[in-house]
């Protein structure tokens, strides 16, 4: 499923540019330890994290993560959004918890 449709189906806010929305979401990964994400997430995973600093974009790029999901309405730094738009990584946000997001995503993916 494309990031665009995934975001719409889960009612998530799209915080970044249009170009990042055409990649495929194939699974999901939830973790806040960056080294752990690097070595355990798979290509195509939507990644849920509470981190909002700009380095999450580097991690997403390195593991071919198409979109980062920020749960519970956390505010994301402008620099992170700019970098993500530049690199065609989508950042999505919702007021839901990681559990609620994963539960709903599991029915879609």
């Amino acid at each position: 499923m494309k990031v665009r449709e995934f975001a719409e189906q889960l009612n998530m806010e799209i915080l970044t540019g249009q170009k990042g929305l055409e990649k495929d979401v194939m699974g999901m990964y939830i973790c806040d330890l960056l080294s752990w994400v690097m070595s355990h997430a798979s290509k195509g995973d939507a990644w849920i994290t509470v981190h909002t600093h700009v380095n999450i974009v580097a991690v997403a790029l390195l593991v071919d993560i198409p979109c980062i999901i920020i749960p519970e309405g956390i505010v994301v730094e402008e620099a992170t959004l700019n970098k993500a738009s530049e690199e065609d990584i989508a950042i999505l946000r919702t007021s839901k918890t990681a559990y609620q997001i994963a539960y709903e995503a599991g029915k879609l993916l």
């Binding site: 806040d32 330890l33 960056l34 080294s35 752990w36 690097m38 070595s39 994290t49 981190h51 600093h53 380095n55 999450i56």
Partner: peptide
């Protein structure tokens, strides 16, 4: 707090 410093960097290098 930024998600770094899990003590997995060197082990990840050795693994990959």
């Amino acid at each position: 707090e930024m998600g770094f410093g899990a003590g997995m960097g060197l082990p990840n290098m050795r693994r990959y």
